[in-house]
């Protein structure tokens, strides 16, 4: 029986996306442990498979075989809902990300808006997870995660608004199309406004903060809050949080590479394709990991100060300068 091409297309993309998310998460877990290892002058996983590449697979199977424990007195519904709420937006966001010239699930002309709409559901998952697990440490970490995400959503959106002013479009495909070669990357000041590199920096810092990574991992601060909002999760509950976190990291870096580094375009304009997209994104992911294993953790007020007193003023300045320049030229 013949299947309508659109239906086949949707099924293809759905299966492809979920396979990619799972594969990406297990690859990033392995990459993170290798990067952390070599930074700390040790090797990282080495036993399971050549160079330990099946280590994250083994971890995944171990996690799946663990029993899902719901702590007594915990709010069962919220406790089970939280990992899903973290995982679903992390997968939905892949609808609009253009991996290749023709390789995008649905090219919505409001692409960026879709991404940010889904990204904000993620923090809801953290809050429910923290609150639902009836654990004081989890509640503290949930409140921290919320205030952190709110504080870092604003500068991120401001930089995106300035970029949209330059690109005149919200569709990610067109943004990538506008940057054929390295000269046209929006990373460089001659392509739009002087403040574009700073815009990239702010966007990159905010995407790290959004996903509770590196110096901003207040949510699951091991040495203060034991394990933060996923203290009480075992087995795949914790696995989903982990998958969600790594796919959010990938999405953050993918967005940064699309908007500022020209997504799947080849820097020399020769043969664009998926590989360029992956190279750029995984380089940014490497930088995120590199930063994580170098810096200590900020405190909550240090983090909020950084956002309200540094990132937001610069993002606003970026907005004004770009608006002025666009008006003049």
């Amino acid at each position: 029986m013949s299947v309508h091409p659109d239906v086949a297309r949707v099924i293809g993309y759905v299966v492809g996306t979920i396979a990619f998310v799972a594969l990406n998460a297990s690859f990033l877990v392995w990459l993170e442990r290798k990067v952390a290892g070599h930074i700390q002058r040790r090797i990282g996983p080495k036993e399971v498979g050549p160079f330990g590449i099946f280590q994250s697979l083994a971890d995944g199977i171990k996690l799946m075989s663990k029993q899902l424990i719901v702590p007594e007195g915990a709010d069962g519904l919220l406790f089970r809902l939280a990992p899903l709420l973290v995982m679903i937006p992390a997968v939905m966001v892949y609808v609009v990300i253009p991996f290749g010239p023709a390789l995008v699930a649905r090219d919505i002309n409001m692409g960026i808006l879709v991404i940010f709409a889904f990204a904000s559901i993620n923090v809801l998952g953290l809050l429910l997870g923290g609150w639902g697990s009836n654990n004081k440490y989890a509640v503290i970490s949930a409140t921290r995660a919320v205030s952190q995400n709110v504080a870092y959503e604003i500068p991120m959106l401001l930089t995106v608004v300035t970029l949209v002013m330059i690109t005149h479009t919200m569709s990610l495909n067109q943004i990538v199309a506008q940057q054929p070669t390295i000269k046209d990357w929006y990373l460089f000041p001659w392509n739009g406004s002087i403040m574009l590199p700073i815009g990239f920096l702010i966007f990159f810092i905010c995407s790290m903060a959004e996903t509770n990574r590196a110096p901003f991992d207040l949510g699951e601060a091991e040495s203060e809050l034991v394990a933060g909002f996923h203290t009480e999760y075992a087995g795949m509950g914790f696995g989903l949080f982990f998958l969600g976190e790594y796919s959010n990291v990938f999405v953050g870096c993918a967005l940064a590479s699309i908007m500022f580094l020209g997504g799947w375009q080849c820097p020399f304009g020769l043969y664009p394709g998926v590989h360029w997209m992956l190279i750029k994104t995984y380089f940014l992911v490497f930088v995120v990991m590199w930063v994580r294993w170098t810096y200590p953790r900020t405190t909550l007020y240090g983090l909020l100060n950084l956002s309200w007193k540094v990132l937001i003023p610069f993002a606003l300045l970026n907005l004004l300068v770009t608006a002025a320049l666009l008006k003049v030229f």
């Binding site: 070599h38 930074i39 040790r42 590199w290």
Partner: peptide
């Protein structure tokens, strides 16, 4: 921050010292 990154990169590309 940049100096910190430089140090960790230098050690990342440096030799591994742990005993397996």
């Amino acid at each position: 921050l940049a100096v910190g990154l430089g140090i960790t990169f230098k050690y990342m590309v440096g030799p591994v010292i742990t005993l397996q």
